[in-house]
Nucleic acid binder design. Sequence first.
DNA 1: GGCTATCAGTTGCTTTTGTAACTAACAACC
DNA 2: GGTTGTTAGTTACAAAAGCAACTGATAGCC
Lengths: 167, 167
Amino acid sequence: MSFDLPLFLPYLLNRAAETASEEFQAQYRSRYGMLRTEWRVLFHLGCYGELTAKEICTAASIHKTKVSRAVRALERKRYLTRRQDTVDRRNEWLSLTRAGHAVFDDLSKAAERYEARLLDGFSPEDVSRLRDTLMKLARIDKEKPRPLASNAPGASLNPAGSLFDET
Amino acid sequence: MSFDLPLFLPYLLNRAAETASEEFQAQYRSRYGMLRTEWRVLFHLGCYGELTAKEICTAASIHKTKVSRAVRALERKRYLTRRQDTVDRRNEWLSLTRAGHAVFDDLSKAAERYEARLLDGFSPEDVSRLRDTLMKLARIDKEKPRPLASNAPGASLNPAGSLFDET
DNA sequence: GGCTATCAGTTGCTTTTGTAACTAACAACC
DNA sequence: GGTTGTTAGTTACAAAAGCAACTGATAGCC
């Protein structure tokens, strides 16, 4: 009859996510004074190379004002730079600086260590089942969200052809 | 070699939790103008009966200022009332009003419907494995967090003996 | 009793987030 | 080529959350 709160999935998911987030936060917060959105933006750039703010919004499901502020903060910390698209000047291509890459390298190692610690005691099957289930719940595509490539010169990180070529 | 963000568990957990939270939010927000913490406090009282703010903080891992404000908001909406502990006047016992119970009944039904929809397509084993894993990750005890009972007269919801009796 | 420590809960102030309106740039259509 | 609609990103203001200091109450110890 009565509702069982600890088993209610949105609640349970949030509890687990908050636990993991708060613990991992110690890494980027204490060491680099970063906020959660800043960490996410940095990791997107570290993992996928040059992206626009819009692409990050879409890939990470973060509102554009949050991304805008995170980008400004990371720029002030000299972890990323902006480059205006030569064809469509509304787009700004963001990429990590050398310092940004160093932070990403360091934090991604810390992330792997933390994840290993978090998952200690779970079997590999448990983990892959969990990931699979969470991907479905979050409605994230399996394939890497490789975004549209840059069309501007010097975009070595985006070797694929551009939507805007030949226009 | 490179870090795979979409598989990183704290990120993935958050994505799934945010998806579920935002969708379920529609229920309590649009219909009752409630915030997330208010919803959580209401459900704790609905599920466990009379509790103190402190007990809610502990059970739900929410900071006391957030609970304090949520309690005030729910009180203003006439969903709960406070009752001062007769023995230790620092404690305030919170319980739902008739209106609060009605909201809880309605929302818990909505919660069950939403959860069913969210889990549509998963097998019962998948679901129970997921719950089990999330409980471990969130470090939540299996047993119901039945808190310390009230010691004051009229505390019909708390039949068990009190820590404070006989003092 | 009186001193100190601790605890439940609240308040004030700062930081962060949410929302909507805005700017600048492009597209499409006539 | 100008009007209308849309898009990327920013900003301004309001709502919410985080944090530290506070109040009132109890406990323990001398």
